[in-house]
Amino acid sequence: MKDYIFSNDFYKNIDAMVLNSGNEVCAPSHAYGPAVRSSYMIHYIRKGKGIYVCGGKTYHLSANDAFLIKPGERIYYEADAQDPWEYTWIGMQGVKIESYLKRTSIFDDYVFSYPPHTELLAFHERLEEANRSWGMNQDLRFNGILYEYLYALCRAFPKADPGDVLKKEAYLEEILVYIENNFDQPISVGHISEMMALDRTYIHKIFKRKMGMSIKEYIVQIRMTTACSLLRYTNLSISDISRSVGYADVLYFSKSFRQKKGCSPSEYRTQKQTRTPSV
């Protein structure tokens, strides 16, 4: 199970992040699929022609057109045999990406065209330049460009009424922030439900759909991730660590830790603190 944590680390950001980006000059009839992607992607066609197949429809696209790929949806795209396309793409992931894209009309349309004299193409170019000059704080650079790009998409392709989407996104963020600030306390789904004055079944569905796990599972995951860090990098006693991650009963903490990690807290500490770093 993947650890979801609040972090500015490029590879652990659960909010929104650039997964990959690039540019490709395709050979005649070059194709991808049929297959599914694991993240959202937007391909912009710089020149040439091709087809995009999604949702049982075939779209014939050319220069200045773009197409959206959604995770888990079966897609196929192929460059024209006579005039193959060159495209640039942005891949993105995070728990907020879907809600951000749902603020635009492109989420339902799948294919669209960049408006004349748009700033949108500049973001592809900025990502390409960032890829060529990798350095410190690159996570902030990539993600800064992504947020600007998403904002530009919302301006260029506004959706009439994204209210319900924004409301659910706000609820999810409130839950995540509350857990992050209170996981060392005896919190539960009931506590969160009362704090937000919302039905517990409703917030459970919102959370499970976005995060792929229940609120209870997420709380345990945050606690165990923090416990592992404390075991490895501090000399705090097991009981101190137990209380620091929300377990008043150290025996229950040890039992839960063993269930998740396959060893006791003491065994985990010994394994991690005595491991010789690889060169």
Rank of each mutant, 00 (worst) to 15 (best):
M1V: 15
D3C: 05
D3V: 03
Y4C: 12
I5C: 05
F10Q: 09
N13I: 09
I14C: 06
A16E: 07
N20W: 08
G22K: 01
P28H: 04
Y32I: 08
P34L: 10
P34I: 14
A35T: 15
V36I: 14
R37T: 13
I42E: 02
G48S: 06
K49F: 11
G50A: 07
G50Y: 00
L61S: 08
A66F: 03
F67Y: 14
G72W: 09
G72P: 03
E73Y: 08
R74K: 10
R74G: 13
I75Q: 02
A81K: 14
D83I: 04
Y87S: 11
G91I: 03
I97S: 12
I97R: 02
I97M: 03
E98P: 07
R103K: 08
T104M: 07
S105A: 13
D109M: 07
Y110T: 09
S113T: 11
Y114N: 11
H117W: 05
H117G: 01
L120S: 07
L120C: 11
L120R: 00
E129Y: 14
N131G: 12
R132M: 15
S133D: 12
S133W: 10
G135E: 15
N137E: 14
L140F: 09
I145V: 11
I145C: 07
Y147C: 09
Y147Q: 05
Y149K: 09
L150R: 11
Y151M: 07
A152P: 03
R155W: 02
F157M: 12
P158I: 01
P158K: 00
P162G: 15
G163L: 08
G163F: 07
K168Y: 01
I175H: 01
L176N: 09
Y178I: 00
Y178W: 06
D184V: 05
Q185R: 14
P186V: 04
S188N: 13
S188T: 11
H191T: 15
I192S: 00
S193N: 05
E194G: 00
Y202T: 00
Y202F: 13
H204I: 00
F207S: 03
K210L: 01
M211Y: 01
M213R: 10
M213E: 15
E217H: 11
Y218R: 03
Y218P: 02
I219T: 02
V220P: 00
M224A: 06
T225S: 14
S229L: 11
S229K: 15
S229V: 02
L230N: 03
R232T: 15
Y233R: 11
T234K: 08
N235M: 06
L236A: 04
I241P: 01
S242W: 11
R243Y: 10
S244W: 01
G246T: 03
F257V: 10
F257T: 10
R258E: 11
R258F: 13
Q259A: 12
S266N: 13
R269T: 07
Q273L: 01
T274K: 13
T276K: 06
T276H: 02
V279S: 08
